[in-house]
């Protein structure tokens, strides 16, 4: 195997992420383990969305909805286990299966309708569907409506792994990220991935040579939805809380920004993007500077916005274009 500098940088990042909990232990501050765990979950969701946007050219603006579905499965399960003593609803494996099937099924319905449209219409219709789910969650009083739902017990993995242990949860998230990275690597290089990329590149020619892109795109949409649902499952367990806010369209926008920041159509791009996005948020919002009685950190988006514009204008592939061996845009 040929070890390119890019591969080494990616490997170094993964090794750093692998030992992070021990580093923070040593530093005596576990705050960063939680922050990075959150970043990795969003990276998993961004990776799944990148299958659609980066490789497939399908700019879905409602991807956070699937995170919400996965998160609410955990929240609702814990709620009924706690309130009504229905123990099986706390079973992590049952929750996981329902989260995956549920988000896949909803993705199937949303995708089947949305993928009949193109361009701006596709963006708007996926966003509209996600907002429907958002307002549904806001409307259901039983599950806390817009206040959200506190999760009093995390998914019960029957002793195989204890999610109440922060380190165990971190490693579940980290290993999940590795699995999703490898899954995407295989998927993109497969016959299926070839069709997805070809359909982005030139749909008219795809039809002319005998492909019907719709069913392949729908399949990609369902796979991406299920992975985002899985990210939701992890997210609810990490936060001990779920609210309609996770599904809000701005959350979907955040995922797109991560992909732009990290670099479209590159395997590791969304991971770098998620890291950059949340690190920047963390750093910019803690700027201690005060101007005219206003703390600059509170308005971090004023700095983040122009930064994003610069990246989109001058580094079309985001972080990816700064790594060695980057493909040059012509």
């Amino acid at each position: 195997m040929n070890l390119s500098p890019r591969l080494l940088i990616n490997a170094a990042l993964l090794i750093f992420l692998a030992v992070l909990p021990f580093l923070t232990d040593w530093a005596g501050d576990s705050f960063y383990t939680g922050l990075v765990a959150r970043i990795l979950i969003l990276a998993i969701a961004a990776l799944s969305l990148n299958l659609l946007i980066g490789y497939g050219g399908m700019v879905s603006f409602g991807h956070a909805a699937f995170i919400g579905v996965g998160a609410y499965v955990v929240g609702i399960g814990a709620f009924h286990a706690f309130e009504d003593g229905i123990d099986w609803m706390l079973n992590g494996y049952i929750q996981l299966v329902i989260a995956l099937l549920g988000s896949a099924f909803i993705a199937l319905i949303i995708g089947a309708i949305s993928l009949r449209t193109r361009g701006v219409y596709f963006i708007m219709i996926t966003m509209a569907f996600s907002q429907m789910l958002y307002f549904t969650a806001v409307g259901v009083e039983t599950y806390g409506a817009d206040d959200g739902l506190s999760i009093y017990s995390r998914s019960d993995m029957l002793g195989l792994i204890d999610l109440n242990d922060e380190k165990s949860l971190y490693y579940l998230i980290f290993v999940s990220l590795l699995v999703v990275l490898y899954l995407m690597h295989r998927l993109v290089g497969s016959a299926f991935g070839n069709v997805i990329r070809g359909s982005k590149s030139n749909e008219a020619r795809m039809r002319a040579i005998g492909f019907s892109p719709y069913k392949y795109r729908l399949t990609a949409f369902v796979i991406a939805g299920a992975i985002a649902g899985y990210a939701g499952f992890l997210m609810a367990n990490l936060n001990d809380f779920v609210s309609p806010d996770v599904m809000h369209w701005t959350r979907s926008g955040d995922l797109i920004i991560m992909i732009l920041l990290g670099g479209m159509a590159s395997l590791f791009g969304p991971l770098y993007g998620a890291l950059a996005f949340l690190m920047l948020e963390e750093i910019l919002s803690s700027i201690p500077l005060t101007i005219g009685g206003l703390r600059v950190g509170e308005y971090w988006q004023l700095i983040f916005g122009p930064l994003l514009i610069l990246i989109v204008l001058y580094a079309r592939n985001g972080v990816d274009s700064f790594l060695p061996g980057a493909r040059k845009n012509t």
Binding site: R186, S190, A191, N194, T219
Partner: peptide, 14 residues
């Protein structure tokens, strides 16, 4: 590839 059966093959490198 378009004329070599369906492309719902997700794993094998192409």
């Amino acid at each position: 590839q378009a004329h070599s059966g369906h492309s719902f093959r997700f794993w094998k490198k192409i």
